[in-house]
Design a protein around this nucleic acid. Structure first.
Length: 357
DNA sequence: TCTGGGGTCCTAGGACCC
DNA sequence: TCTGGGGTCCTAGGACCC
């Protein structure tokens, strides 16, 4: 491993799902747009997936219950999640981005890391490259993105979030610690609501507070995560930009329209979910060994039960049978059920499998 | 505020083997 | 019958990501 300085670019599409919807339907221009569950006049169950900036002005945001979004802005345009459409646009953009990078990592449907160390001489060239990327995406796909450039993935990702939408933020190695210090801890990767609360309890609010904290105390409080927090707070992240491999699990969940105790209904849903999982797994040419079922009751208490088969299989029958076994053993028939889910995992590659036969 | 759906990774305890 | 240490696999739950 050489000590060569790296330059990493993080590309993040701006409010991707609604941006695609707006592109497809010019009537949406200038209006608040929300992609997510059916609001059902304020009685809908699901959540907001994405909303555009106009909708954000009403206080709406991702993950918010759709019923609340309706209260805040009933006049917004509500659209269901058209995943196939976004998936298509995404793959166009990803193959466009890939050619700019020596190393490429798709992070999600609308984000990617590009390792460009050998493609650019310095940060000025990296910035010019970032502008070129923004131009090409806008020309070809008619949507904007925000880009962060930095010495590693962590800094590039945080930087891309600083100026949005249509932003570009470059953080050079020597500016990293100063850049991070005043930001709230929540901006760090892997720091969610729980970790934020826990940090607050020991008086830590900003990334700079973490950087100035005793690393051994952090480790006592957060285990290996504590060490990671300390390193991240100093802008240190050695993780590589690497191509994503095969999925490690494939699952389908379903939240019922209303909580139910009707077991026949629940078993039908599980069969349907098993079938969907099976089709997906079959398309990917995978064999699974582990089956997991998920049950969420009306009070949101959620349990998972899993069984690892003594063999890898690609048969629907095995999936459905195992799901039934697991549910029969663990389901509490006296409680109302809100959601059920089916997951397959512990995949054996087909190559390995062939050797065993 | 009353919480979707698709994932990944980590932890901790128990079973089992040597 | 009581005892150890290490390794691996399995299960359940939780935090986090978009």
């Amino acid at each position: 491993m050489s000590g060569k300085r790296r330059i990493i670019i993080h590309v993040d599409m701006d409010h991707f799902f609604t941006a695609v919807e707006e592109r497809e339907d010019p009537n949406l221009k200038g209006k608040p747009v929300i992609v997510g569950a059916d609001p059902k006049e304020g009685k809908g169950w699901g959540v907001v997936s994405t909303c555009n900036y106009k909708a954000r002005k009403f206080g709406i945001g991702s993950g918010m219950p759709i019923s609340r979004a309706w209260k805040l802005c009933p006049e917004a345009i509500y659209r269901p999640v058209n995943y196939m459409l976004y998936e298509g646009v995404s793959s166009e953009i990803m193959s466009m981005l890939r050619k700019y990078a020596e190393k490429f990592e798709q992070w999600s449907i609308d984000e990617a890391f590009l390792g460009v160390t050998s493609k650019v001489k310095d940060y000025d060239e990296a910035e010019a490259l970032a502008h070129q990327i923004k131009r090409e995406i806008l020309e070809k796909e008619k949507i904007t993105c925000s880009i962060g450039v930095g010495p590693n993935k962590l800094v590039a990702k945080i930087a891309s979030d600083i100026q949005k939408p249509d932003g570009l933020t470059v953080i050079k190695e020597e500016d990293v610690e100063g850049f991070l210090a005043s930001l709230p801890v929540r901006k760090l990767l892997w720091v969610g609501r729980k970790t934020e609360q826990k940090l607050k309890r020991i008086g830590i609010k900003t990334i700079g507070d973490i950087a100035n904290h005793d690393p051994t105390v952090l480790k006592e409080n957060f285990g290996s995560m504590g060490t990671q927090l300390y390193l991240m707070a100093h802008g240190i992240d050695r993780s590589e930009v690497e191509e994503r491999g095969e999925a490690k699990s494939v699952s389908r969940d379903l939240t019922f329209e209303e909580d139910t105790t009707d077991l026949e209904f629940v078993f039908d849903a599980l069969d349907k979910l098993s079938d969907d999982v099976y089709k997906d797994v079959a398309t990917r040419n995978l064999w699974f060994k582990t089956v997991t079922v998920k049950v969420r009751y009306e009070d949101f208490e959620t349990h998972t039960h899993r069984k690892t088969l003594p063999f890898a299989t690609n048969r629907l029958q095995d999936l459905q049978k195992t799901v039934k076994l697991l549910v029969q053993d663990y389901l509490r028939p006296d409680r109302k059920i809100r959601l059920v889910g089916v997951r397959s995992s512990n995949f054996a590659s087909t190559e390995k499998q062939k050797k065993l036969i």
